[in-house]
Design a protein around this nucleic acid. Structure first.
Lengths: 217, 217
DNA sequence: TAAGAAACATAGCGGCGTTATGCAACACTG
DNA sequence: CAGTGTTGCATAACGCCGCTATGTTTCTTA
């Protein structure tokens, strides 16, 4: 009286194919028919395993959050918390640049047909920033940042880096003020805005570049 | 040997209907069939007047840029350039909140089928920020901001406000750090990051709230 | 070994953007 | 004031899409 078990390789295969299509060809390529063809099965497989296209997308988004969390966890705390914070920003941006379409899905940029994030998904996303909140706390404790709510400070970092990433993705950051230049300037300004001195901020942001490249082989 | 002239009311009617659909029901509602039905004509009208759905969207985006430019032009310069800058930020955010779907189209957030901004469109968008560049120059000239490239400073303002707007649109800015709180904090931090003192920045941002409500009846 | 339930293929529905076709309405020529 | 050419636009169709109804296959367990 028990059901037939599905091939355990089908579900991850579908996610893999879909994630690859999203990464390589963008949201347009994400159709049940296309995914089914690439995975060598019928469109029904998508519905038995996920119920709808949107749920498959959600699954991919969750994997994106995990990847982002991994990227942020990579940067181990050093003696310079402000440099750590800047390195977190670099890691965040690095991840976004490496998975632009995924990033768009995760943070609401691309609607992808009827896909919409749920409050749970967003909580998942915010949770990922726990590392940043902790780092903000260390910056404050070290006297580098003004006394303030670490969560609010982390949000400001997040917002600014997200702004660079999305405007750059939209193609708006070009020659005299290209994305790299804006990003570097933004990092320094953020630290100063949070309470650091101009000199210390510049030095730490400078240091973070080495920290980051050291953290990503 | 001359052609029949089209009803001059058709083209603007199509744009109006499409813009209304986008504003009221979001990108999903923007289909040639839906637009044609609402406008009381066939889908072909869209193709004779615009060539494709994307071009119609582009037209709407251009109107969005004009609206944003109007909003930014509303704030007349006062004796406090930093307050003016904050007021520009408020105006920008106000416009984005008033036309969220339009904003998403303008700045690359929603792809809307095959729609993609051209470099011309983006130039149109960047041009709109001329006001902000001018204001940044005045902040620097007044000694409130550190000496720097006004265009870069304007970009940093843009990026930060864009970040708040899009993360809020994605539903990521909630209770303890809601959009309003983040935005106010971001404004002050931006001015400090650009070189202003903490006290002067706080005062000017405070003043800008009154400036802004005075500018928008 | 027989039965029942889940996994999936096939085929179909209504919707989409876009295009091919045809007709009717107008502006110009003579 | 015909006649003619050109265009605006309606109709219908094509190949996509997400999704579902239906049938078959296959595994598990009683």
């Amino acid at each position: 009286m028990s059901p037939r078990k599905s091939d355990p390789r089908v579900r991850p295969a579908l996610i893999d194919v879909a994630a690859r299509l999203l990464a390589e060809e963008g949201p347009q390529a994400l159709s049940t028919r296309r995914i089914a063809t690439e995975a060598g099965c019928s469109t029904m497989a998508v519905y038995t395993h996920f119920g709808s296209m949107s749920e498959l997308v959600r699954e991919i988004a969750h994997e994106g959050f995990a990847r982002l969390a991994g990227e942020l966890a990579r940067a181990a705390p050093t003696a310079d918390p402000v440099a750590d914070m800047a390195a977190l920003g670099r890691g965040y941006r690095h991840n976004a640049l490496a998975n632009p379409h995924l990033y768009a899905v995760m943070f609401g940029g691309s609607s992808l047909g009827g896909f919409a994030l749920t409050e749970q998904d967003r909580q998942h996303g915010r949770y990922t920033l726990g590392t940043v909140v902790g780092c903000a706390g260390r910056c404050i404790a070290a006297g580098r940042f003004r006394h303030a709510d670490p969560e609010l400070v982390a949000h400001q970092m997040w917002i600014a880096v997200h702004g660079v990433v999305t405007l750059a993705a939209g193609g708006y950051l070009v020659d005299p003020c290209d994305a790299d230049r804006c990003f570097e300037a933004q990092l320094v300004a953020l630290m100063i805005g949070a309470g650091d001195t101009a000199e210390a901020a510049a030095r730490s942001v400078d240091r973070s570049a080495a920290l980051f490249t050291a953290g990503t082989p």
